[in-house]
Amino acid sequence: MKILVCITNVPDTTAKISFTDNDTKFNKAGVQYIIGPYDDYALARAVELKEKLGGTITVLNVGEAESDPQIRKALAIGADDAIRVNCDPQDSYFTAAQIAAIAKDGSYDLILMGRESIDFNSGVVHSLVGEMLGIPSFSPVMKLDIEGSTAKFAREIEGGKENLEAPLPLVLGCQEPIAEWKIPNMRGIMTARTKPLKVVEPVAVDELATLDKYTLPAPKGACKMIPADQAETLISLLKTEAKVL
């Protein structure tokens, strides 16, 4: 079983977002980075599957050297080796083309990703990669087991879930409760230092969308407090003032 897990290097979920260079660059000052939370679920399930079925896990990131600590963390959690495609991707199509270039020899039985990145929030890279490789893709997957060359999995649909079966290879976008996030142990951290991290240059792909500028949402006005003993007035305010009822 060969599993490829694609991880993003993203600001911590509590990070304050701001921009520099005339609102064209993300302000990294003081920001803590993490493995994308959904990618972390994908990695956790990959580690469990490897424990059960044997095989190897490769982690892949399309990003610059600042991703390396998160890649090392993924190695400490249980991946065997890593590839980083050295660039700063701005467009989902470009990112997907880089991942597809790595996986196009068809050696991976399973390509696991997060349901979405928490910086771009596109939810499209897995489907792009699936189509580029000519293999099926599904998202968001909340349960996954492998039996022989068949994946048995559950996907969230509106208002519920759907149980599916499909032959490998597959690309899956993962979300909880597929597995519990794993914390690296001391041994993992030690061995991660010596596991191979290969840095490759990107293949040439046109960027089909480019960043013009960033903006922040307008600041929220003050909250209007309604005394608890007059809670009922909320309903009339929502009608007449906010006009949402």
Binding site: D91, S92, Y93, A96, N121, S122, G123, V124, V125, H126, S127, L128, G130, E131, M132, S137, F138, S139, P140, E156, I157, E158, L208, A209
Partner: peptide, 22 residues
């Protein structure tokens, strides 16, 4: 939506189209 992101992306890869979601 989940369905639309997935189908839009696969169609984009078929057509070599830009895809911008959200």
């Amino acid at each position: 939506s989940g369905l639309c992101d997935s189908m839009g992306a696969r169609a984009a890869a078929k057509l070599g189209a830009s895809i911008v979601s959200g």
